[in-house]
Every structure is written in structure tokens, then in C-alpha cells.
Amino acid sequence: MNRSARALSVRAMLVACAILLGWVERMLPPFLPMIPGAKLGLANLATLTTLALMDAPSALLVCVARTLLGAFMFGSASALPYALSGGVAAWAVMALSRRMFNLPGISLLGGVAHNITQIAVASLMFANAGLWGYAPYLIAVGSVSGFLLGWAANHITRRLPSGLISLNNKSK
């Protein structure tokens, strides 16, 4: 199998993992049901892993693909603008902060960016700035869950078979 075909299939696998993780999170009872929008963000694990193992464009691809596919498969259309904008914002912040922090820090910033973006989008959709009242909660939740997911991603990348990592043409 040539290099680009393998890269493509690895990305596809990561998308599949992300969709699966999103489905798993959907099955779990909502943690912190009193705060709307507060979630673990398990699916972001895949974006994060892609970012760590491959490159930023691949991570964006995985992020957008899993959001769209997830929405078509079991999501509701009304949630798509939130999921998509949050996912892309998280990807952008994570890609930019890649050289400054380890995976927990990168993931934390992604989580916070995701949640802040959701509030911004909701404020537009609701035409009401009052939703920023949730910001302190969602910053805290995004930080903690992002940090924990980053820590998990650290372990995942270390335990993945080395063949995957060597795929990365920019590998160290």
C-alpha cells in the first residue's frame, strides 16, 4: 500500500474512532446536567490524537468529518452549528498552541475554545448576551475535562503501535 493511501486509511480510522467515542458519550448519562453545554468531549480525543500523530490539516479533516457524519448518523440538525463551530474553534486553538504546551494544556485550551464558541454561537442564535452567564462554568468545565482528555491522549499516543507514528512524514 502506498504512503498516501495508508495515510488516508489511518485518517478514516481516526474518524471512525471519533464517531464511536461520540456515540459512547451519547450513551453516558449527562455529567453536570445543570449546566447546558457541559460535556466531556470524548470525541475530541480523536482530533487531539490526529494532531499529535499527524498534522493540523489532518486533524481539521477528522474534526469536520466526524462532526458531520455524527450529526447525520445520530445527531440532531439543530445541534450541528454548535458542534461544527465549537469543533473548528477548538482545532484552531489546539493547532496554534501545539508548540507551547503538552497534550493536557493543548487539549485544555481546545476545550475552553470549544465552550466559549458555543456560548458565542448561542448568543447569536438566541439574540441574547445573557448566555455569557454560563461562561465561568463552561470555562471551568472545559479546562478540567480538556486537561483530563489531554492526559488520556498522552497515554494513547504512547501506547499506539509505532507503525502509525512513522506514518507522519513530519515525524521527529
Partner: peptide, 13 residues
């Protein structure tokens, strides 16, 4: 994942 540390980062925080 072992890139050389950048000094400027606490600034970012």
C-alpha cells in the same frame, strides 16, 4: 512530543 521548550510561554498564560 519532545520539542524544545519555548521560554515565552508563561507569558501566554
Amino acid at each position: 512530543m519532545n520539542r524544545s521548550p519555548t521560554r515565552a510561554t508563561p507569558l501566554a498564560a
